[in-house]
Design a protein around this nucleic acid. Structure first.
Lengths: 232, 232
DNA sequence: TCAAAAGTGTTCAGCGTACACCCATGT
DNA sequence: ACATGGGTGTACGCTGAACACTTTTGA
């Protein structure tokens, strides 16, 4: 803001938050959507949203709204883009700041979600959404694809302990194409940011796959050496 | 926005635009800053800004504000990030949407700029700015570095006709490290998105350097072939 | 004639990519 | 015993990176 003292005389606006909430389940990337219980657009789906309050920062508002829906406080949340066309919301002029969140579906509070009419949709089977929400989703997908390559945020979508086949399926789901198993393992392991546990997960095979954890300290060490995380 | 009909009862906010305006001149990347003529922060520098009006989209507002300062209508302009901490502006609660713009300094209306107290600063000699404007600038720099690698937007900072040494200096200024002349030329020419003219620019050498133009059609062709622009 | 910038090819190492078989185990 | 998913190594081609000399021309 360049202007001086008196802001009076300028119009004020409703400012909202809309959240694109990603989860990963059954080998698929999913979004948490809300079925609207009221007109207009009753029974249509929308992103979870809410208004920014007077004494609340916008990030705080985004966390609050997310917690209302999922019960989760510590979540990966990042601002995406602000949408401010005059007619974007058919009710009134609302400027909406879109955020995207990555959550581990297992931690999500199913009961709380149901109160809001929340439903998980696979990313490739999304219904039409109200207003410009589809546009927000496609922007979020692009961002997620880019970010997961250069920053270790994909792990936010997995349980703390995960197997390499799981991690690979996650990356395949995000990037929407298959990856070579050997190359994938070689690359992620060569970065040395995972710790292998001596436990196996046998839920998806008889032999079982070793469990790993993302190791933040190792990651920080990597970065402090001037190296980069890069996957896919 | 997920909520229904009545938005009444929610607070409204001042929404502003702040613009990071990049230019390239004398081999240096520069920013256009405003010297404030009023308290608070009189004589300090800030980004160019203004408020979003009631019947104005946010992109429209950004273009309007930019035109007020530079006289330029057709400018590369992209939304950066929205800043909404409660106390970020010491006057009042203002949510600010930051944009960054790339302009050809030669086209800029010097006279108009002076009315606003606008001054070009080399990117590595910036004064402290008011509020969170330094943070916005550093975010814009990161974005510019990333974007100029994968999209041909650097040309927006140059005159229509430019030489390869100029283009290289631009990329060196943006990325803040020297590039190998042969590798640079090889790469940009191999993409075949430039048209060589049979004119030379002799302003910086006796021999003169050939002028080139960015060719949007060739670029579109490149993209339609599934190829990518990638430089540096 | 000389100073100053423009222009031009090749070599090498490292990395991404393609690819096929054995292993462990529950049923 | 067999079906199912987990785990492993190598060879090749491409691309990014390093590197030095010749050309042009105005002063």
């Amino acid at each position: 803001m360049a202007k001086h003292s008196h802001y009076q005389g300028f119009e004020k606006h409703y400012v909202a938050i809309d959240s694109i909430i990603f989860g990963f389940d059954e080998g698929k990337l999913k979004l948490l959507l809300i079925k609207r219980k009221f007109e207009p657009h009753k029974d249509n789906y929308s992103l979870m949203g809410g208004f920014v309050r007077e004494n609340e920062g916008i990030d705080d508002a985004a966390y609050r709204i997310l917690e209302d829906l999922t019960g989760l406080k510590t979540i990966y949340l990042e601002q995406l883009q602000t949408y401010g066309e005059v007619k974007r919301d058919s009710e009134a002029r609302v400027i909406s700041i879109a955020y995207y969140a990555l959550i581990n579906i297992a931690d999500y509070d199913e009961e709380l979600g149901q109160k809001h009419g929340a439903v998980w949709f696979p990313i490739d089977e999304l219904p039409p959404l109200i207003f410009d929400h589809n546009e927000m989703v496609s922007k979020a997908m692009k961002r997620l694809k880019r970010k997961t390559v250069i920053e270790p945020i994909g792990f936010e979508l997995l349980p703390e302990k995960f197997t390499l086949p799981q991690l690979q399926k996650l990356y395949e789901a995000i990037h929407q194409h298959p990856l070579d198993k050997r190359n994938f393992r070689k690359k992620i392991l060569s970065m040395k940011v995972l710790s292998m546990l001596d436990e196996k997960d046998k839920s998806s095979s008889k032999r079982g796959a070793f469990l790993y954890m993302f190791d933040k300290e190792k990651y920080d060490y990597l970065i402090s050496n001037g190296d980069y995380f890069e996957l896919v």
